[in-house]
């Protein structure tokens, strides 16, 4: 029983490690250099998959939050909180890699582009989610409030998307609906990076959850003494 939680993080961790080893080869050697942006475009292979992982994390947080309020299962709250935490990490990566890319291409660290603003606001909501957790004392109430914020926060995504779109758009649109406007070599490298980042996301998520479970166990053991 006690061994089981360590298998999943290990499997995904090894998978992520292998992929992370192969990804630089695909990104720097296999995929061609983009004509207009040159080497700066390479960061796209890490930036966009990080963004996907961030949205995946927020979505998981939303789903687990609903399940928590519905089933009142402590594990759902744990998963929601851990998803949000990993999502915040990837969000930070998106913002940092985005800024590094924007400096040579747009000539500024930050441009108030629609997708950048969307990411930033989602990042703020995720940060607020963690603040809320840190500032609440009663664990049951904390879990309930977090679930409410997890739902309210995720519902905000379509509004931010629509509002920022109306407000302004500068972003290069790589993925337009079904069609992906990339040459085959870049496409292959990109998809590989998406798989890599998802593997990394799940490795971190499973690890974080098993850590949180161990933490809870320790707390209850301490309480027994």
């Amino acid at each position: 029983m006690h061994q089981k939680p360590y298998i999943l993080p290990l499997v995904f961790g090894i998978l992520a490690l292998i992929c992370l080893g192969i990804a630089p080869y695909l990104v720097f050697v296999y995929a061609g250099i983009e004509k207009e942006m040159g080497l700066a475009q390479k960061i796209f292979y890490y930036h966009v998959p990080s963004a996907f992982s961030m949205f995946l994390g927020s979505f998981l947080c939303f789903v687990f939050s609903i399940f928590y309020l519905w089933k009142r299962d402590k594990n759902c709250d744990l998963w929601a909180a851990c998803s949000a935490e990993v999502s915040l990490l990837f969000g930070t990566l998106v913002l940092i890699t985005g800024a590094i890319w924007a400096k040579p291409i747009w000539g500024a660290w930050w441009v108030w582009d629609a997708q950048l603003t969307l990411t930033l606001i989602l990042w703020l909501i995720l940060a607020a989610y963690h603040m809320l957790r840190a500032y609440l004392e009663d664990p049951v109430q904390s879990a309930r409030f977090r679930a409410v914020l997890g739902i309210i926060g995720f519902l905000n995504v379509p509004f931010i998307h629509y509002a920022t779109k109306l407000w302004r758009t500068h972003h290069p649109e790589v993925v337009r609906g079904e069609e992906i406007s990339l040459p085959p070599d870049m496409k292959a490298a990109f998809f590989f990076c998406v798989i890599t980042f998802f593997a990394l996301f799940f490795a971190l998520l499973f690890k974080r959850v098993s850590l949180a479970k161990a933490q809870n166990e320790l707390e209850s053991l301490k309480a027994e003494i």
Binding site: I121, L124, I125, A127, M131, L132, F145, L149
Partner: peptide, 26 residues
């Protein structure tokens, strides 16, 4: 919600403002 946090009412803007941004923009 914010009433139950350790910061009490002072916590309210931290929760409200990020969610309000799209409507504020509108």
């Amino acid at each position: 919600m914010s009433l139950n946090t350790r910061l009490r009412e002072a916590f309210l803007p931290l929760l409200t403002l990020p969610i309000f941004i799209p409507a504020l923009l509108a």
